[in-house]
Computed example of a mutant assay.
Amino acid sequence: MAGSNGPGETGRSGPGGQGGRDHRDDDLERRRRNLEASLATRQPDRQERKEGAGGATGYGQAMKLSSEFIAGVAVGAGLGWGIDRLAGTSPWGLIVFLLLGFVAGVLNVLRSVGKVAEFGHGSNQGPRRKD
């Protein structure tokens, strides 16, 4: 085949052997521009977020995350203290529920940030039947 750049051919189609290389460079440049355009359409608000991000939004996010964590720990400690008062198991209820509250607070923070999927909405929802 004349003019094709198959395996084993050198790509010399013009004088000096630059014809195939110019075509590959043009193709590569075209593909790079298409990739940049595709990325720009998929993430249009990235520049807007950088320009419009003020201290109030970061402060609000920090307050939300810290309050979710503190609420988990406080509820766990309150439940543990209440169970200890009712059952008479002095430090053990508080210790166990304080640890459970800590874990719940960490999970709430991770869910808010988006690092952990909501319960039942993950990609692995259990075994599926084959029909």
Rank of each mutant, 00 (worst) to 15 (best):
S123C: 11
T89H: 04
G101I: 05
F119H: 10
L65K: 08
R32G: 05
L107E: 01
G72S: 04
I70E: 09
E118K: 12
Q47I: 02
Q43N: 13
F102K: 03
G19W: 00
Q43P: 00
G58L: 15
G16N: 08
M63V: 15
I83E: 09
G76Q: 05
A117F: 03
L99Q: 06
R46G: 10
E9T: 07
H121K: 15
A71R: 05
G3N: 12
E51W: 00
M63K: 12
A53P: 00
V73N: 06
G72M: 06
A53F: 07
T41G: 04
A71M: 10
L65C: 09
L86N: 05
L86S: 10
E48L: 13
G58E: 15
G14H: 05
G122Q: 12
A104T: 05
L110E: 06
Q18E: 08
L98F: 15
G17V: 01
H23D: 01
S4Q: 12
G80W: 04
A104S: 07
R24E: 14
G19A: 05
F97V: 07
V103L: 12
V113M: 08
S123K: 14
G19S: 04
K50N: 03
G8P: 09
E9I: 02
K50V: 04
R128P: 02
K130C: 13
E36T: 07
G72Q: 06
E29A: 15
Q61G: 09
G54H: 09
R32D: 11
V75F: 02
N34M: 15
A71C: 10
M63H: 10
H23A: 03
R111C: 03
G105C: 01
G58H: 13
G8V: 06
G101H: 06
E118P: 03
I95H: 05
G19H: 00
R30Y: 09
A37F: 03
T41P: 00
N34Y: 13
T57L: 13
G20H: 01
L110T: 10
L94S: 14
G19K: 00
L35I: 09
F119N: 14
G16I: 01
D84P: 12
G60Y: 08
F102C: 11
G120L: 05
L39C: 02
Q43G: 03
L99M: 13
P127G: 15
R12K: 11
A62N: 11
L86E: 08
A77F: 07
E29V: 04
V113I: 13
N108R: 11
R42P: 00
L35T: 03
N34C: 11
D25G: 07
S66K: 13
G54C: 06
G101W: 08
G126Y: 10
K130Q: 15
L107F: 00
D84S: 09
G55V: 06
E29D: 12
G60C: 12
D26F: 01
N34H: 15
G93I: 03
N5M: 12
P7M: 10
S67I: 11
G80H: 09
Q43M: 11
S123G: 15
E51N: 08
A40E: 14
Q43H: 13
D22E: 11
G120T: 11
G20W: 00
E9N: 13
D27W: 03
L107A: 01
G8H: 08
